[in-house]
Design a protein around this nucleic acid. Sequence first.
DNA 1: GATGAATGAGGGTTCATTCAT
DNA 2: GATGAATGAACCCTCATTCAT
Lengths: 198, 198, 198, 198
Amino acid sequence: MPTAVGRFRPPAVREIALRGTRRRYDPERRTRILRAALDVVAEHGVAGTTHRRVAATADVPLGSMTYHFTGMDEVLTEAFGLLADRVATRFTERLAAAANPDEACEAVVDLIVDESWATPRNMLLSYELYAFAVRNPPLRRVMQDWMEKSRAALRQHFAPDTAKVLDAMIEGLSIHRSVDVEPMSRAEVRSVVERLVH
Amino acid sequence: MPTAVGRFRPPAVREIALRGTRRRYDPERRTRILRAALDVVAEHGVAGTTHRRVAATADVPLGSMTYHFTGMDEVLTEAFGLLADRVATRFTERLAAAANPDEACEAVVDLIVDESWATPRNMLLSYELYAFAVRNPPLRRVMQDWMEKSRAALRQHFAPDTAKVLDAMIEGLSIHRSVDVEPMSRAEVRSVVERLVH
Amino acid sequence: MPTAVGRFRPPAVREIALRGTRRRYDPERRTRILRAALDVVAEHGVAGTTHRRVAATADVPLGSMTYHFTGMDEVLTEAFGLLADRVATRFTERLAAAANPDEACEAVVDLIVDESWATPRNMLLSYELYAFAVRNPPLRRVMQDWMEKSRAALRQHFAPDTAKVLDAMIEGLSIHRSVDVEPMSRAEVRSVVERLVH
Amino acid sequence: MPTAVGRFRPPAVREIALRGTRRRYDPERRTRILRAALDVVAEHGVAGTTHRRVAATADVPLGSMTYHFTGMDEVLTEAFGLLADRVATRFTERLAAAANPDEACEAVVDLIVDESWATPRNMLLSYELYAFAVRNPPLRRVMQDWMEKSRAALRQHFAPDTAKVLDAMIEGLSIHRSVDVEPMSRAEVRSVVERLVH
DNA sequence: GATGAATGAGGGTTCATTCAT
DNA sequence: GATGAATGAACCCTCATTCAT
């Protein structure tokens, strides 16, 4: 006997008995989705980031995506916010560990040369963020906050103007190192940093 | 037996038209498609760049897309190549116009501060390119060539090491200027350039 | 670790709210839901009548819908029953107010011409009911009862056969009046009624 | 090697070799979809009429639906237009067959009593149309044209005013016959028609 | 050579319904 | 008893791509 409001039918009586772990009442779900979204962006780019892929990566049902977020833009916006927080925190910690100006310079060199901050993954995610932010005003704010946190970290050791310049230099050198077939040596980078500091 | 309502109408999706003015034997078609692709990327991002939109923007039939290109990746790869050529050429011309080291410094400052090279559109397209290139090896080559052309242009006036550093600085400052709520003044930029040059 | 952008927000779908004013022990809830269902049908059609919309309109929690009713079919069936009751009652009252055959004819004309019974809303709901009833046997009974009540009201003043014919005429003229660009005048309707009565 | 624009992948290389009959270049497709849509509406109601069900009934791929029509509203609008044409044509033909006023009356009675015009299917589709038309202005026009055609057919034998009344009576009696547990006899209907005609 | 009608996979989203609380 | 967070099936629609012309 067909129902008149026929578009949706009740889900087939549970036959498979809780696939995987039943995960009702999962307070960390939102955050897990955001982390998964960053993984998907890293692997497929914003262009290839779909609700389905993120849901699969986060191991949540597809319906959870639009239940917790209004759309993919919201997911990406919050995910990039999470990224900025995490990276800025690590950036700040590395600089806080420096005890004097010389160690501070060394820390800056590390941030450029080591793959602790400028990992391929982080670089890639940054590019995706920059491109995405142009079309998503809320993310411009995320980028500004991120930049300000970096500068604040640098101001622990350097004058404000120098901090701004160093921050830009870190950006430029990190990007070019990731492209260059013969990346600059550690010594060269150290020399550049010193020219900017003094 | 036609209905009173609809008769036949062309499919809803088609809006490109062009009907009438057939455009067979159109040697510029490939290039026109590439230019259109850049426009679409600038407006919708790589994520929103589809065959349909590019075809509509280039005013070519949809079938032309897969006739001239194997797929969107090929379109984007060639389009970004075109972008790199155009921008690198303008970059080189600006520096070639400088007659002495001081004018060269001024040219570098211009490239950062003026909106001649670092236009919002170019910045955006760069971000899209960087993100896209991570997943498309052919484009890494495009980026490397672009970087090498920029450095070569700078080597007209500066030592090779300095050229590399200046190029990275231009990159970093351009990006940060596009994000910063209070961008660095021209004088500050000039001062940074001089610190790197001497 | 909360992101800078989003913290936690309630799921996007919820807008009903009501928060605060808990409404436990609400004996009128069923009826309120049914009235809301009619409003939703009037606005969106049976096709667009969903649990969510009805719950929102009735200002009850979504869970209330499936708690009080087995499904949308039950909601609609009872809601249309309520409609039939209300409309048949008004119909009966209007006829009961007539004191003699002539006034009875006038009452019939009123029911067709005035927008007291054949309001756009009621006409619309009737169409939805008719369509729905074809596929829902319980509602055929509702329609039959409704028709019988109308005929009984007419039998107060007219012979049984005439009552049946008048009832059908009211139906037909009401529908055509709602479609016609130049609806029949009151005088014409009166003339039709008289031809059927005598 | 993942593609950057990853949302859509090419259809799997044809493995099943033209399922059913390959049906490219199918000029009757639109009409076939419309006929199928009426079948689906008759079976599931407008509420249960989905692209999928119509496509399956018409034996066309799902993508054909939105290729040929902008959406379900357009499908329904044209389908109901087709219905109106077909039914009005049959109505007209039946009346055209009458040679004199008496035969014309008999034809009217037939249209009400026989299941030639007022078939359950046609009645149901009419209800769905009426309900749908309230929310779709283009269909009001379809209904008006339909009504006008019916009246024109009746004017072949009756005065304009009488034609209008008869048309409404046909409507009302048809509906009530489809609801009534003891439908009016042929003789009663004949008597009603004569009262309206003279 | 070039086109565009047609395809069907995959997209985002909405929904009735369940079930731990 | 009553709720609402969570589910996943089904929805409509867009897309890159194919292939008869």
